[in-house]
Simulated assay, not measured.
Amino acid sequence: MLIIEKIEGFEVISDEILRDIAQRAHGGWSTEYIAKYNGAEVGLLSFDFYQNKMESKIHEIYVLSEFREKGIGRKLLMYAEEVAMELRCFSIALEPHPFDRTVSLDMLISWYARNGYTPLVSNPKMMVKNLVYAVR
């Protein structure tokens, strides 16, 4: 079973690779989340929220190589979109960049496109997905 938890401090991350990525991804606006599969740390999400614009950005999605091709990256992506919708963001953006040599930039761009992200006209390196949420 996959669970995704907000990280309160980097010292709680036992996997050295994920801890390093979380520390590098963390910025003034970001919140990091760890994905655990059957108790093992398997992935990371770094998420930014810009309240003044009601926009969000995925700073990083990373899945350890031995856990790829199991839908974990997709679940992290969907989780980020759910958080953005809960925050009433109009869109969610990202800049695809491979974190290691096992994934190419073209593969990432294609994967994000299949999940509804399109390049920004003003900045083709960035991809965006418009979000729709129910007004309560």
Rank of each mutant, 00 (worst) to 15 (best):
P98R: 08
E16M: 13
M127S: 01
R101D: 13
E16I: 06
K70T: 05
H97I: 13
I92Y: 03
G73W: 05
H97F: 10
I21V: 08
F99D: 03
S30R: 02
S14T: 14
P98T: 07
C89E: 01
T31C: 03
R24H: 04
Y117T: 02
M127A: 03
F67V: 03
L94Q: 03
D20V: 14
T118Q: 10
E16C: 03
L76W: 13
G71T: 09
G116P: 11
I61G: 01
P124Y: 15
V128M: 10
Y133G: 04
F49Y: 14
E81T: 02
H97M: 14
Y33A: 00
L105T: 07
A22M: 05
G27F: 10
G28N: 15
N38S: 09
L120K: 11
P96Q: 05
I72S: 02
A134D: 09
Y62G: 02
N130M: 12
E55V: 01
I61E: 02
L94C: 05
E81F: 04
L87A: 05
R68I: 08
E82Q: 11
M54Y: 08
S91Q: 11
P96E: 07
M107G: 07
I17Q: 14
K125N: 12
S122A: 11
S110E: 14
S14Y: 09
P96W: 15
E32V: 13
N52A: 12
D100T: 12
E95F: 15
E32D: 09
E32R: 02
I21H: 11
A40N: 06
I109L: 06
T102N: 09
F90P: 00
S65W: 02
S110T: 15
K57P: 01
I58F: 09
W111G: 02
G28H: 14
M85C: 05
M85T: 10
A40T: 12
I13R: 09
A93F: 12
F90S: 12
G27V: 13
G71H: 14
N115Y: 08
W111P: 00
L87Q: 05
K129M: 01
N38T: 07
L105Q: 13
Y62S: 08
A113T: 14
I17R: 13
C89Y: 00
Y50I: 12
G43W: 10
H59F: 11
Y133N: 00
L94H: 04
R24I: 07
R88E: 06
S122W: 10
L76V: 11
E55I: 00
N115G: 04
P119D: 10
K36A: 04
E81G: 01
F47A: 01
M126E: 09
K75F: 07
T102C: 06
A134K: 14
A35F: 08
L76M: 14
N123A: 07
R88H: 12
R101Y: 08
N115H: 15
W29V: 06
L87S: 05
N130V: 15
E41I: 14
D106G: 08
I58N: 03
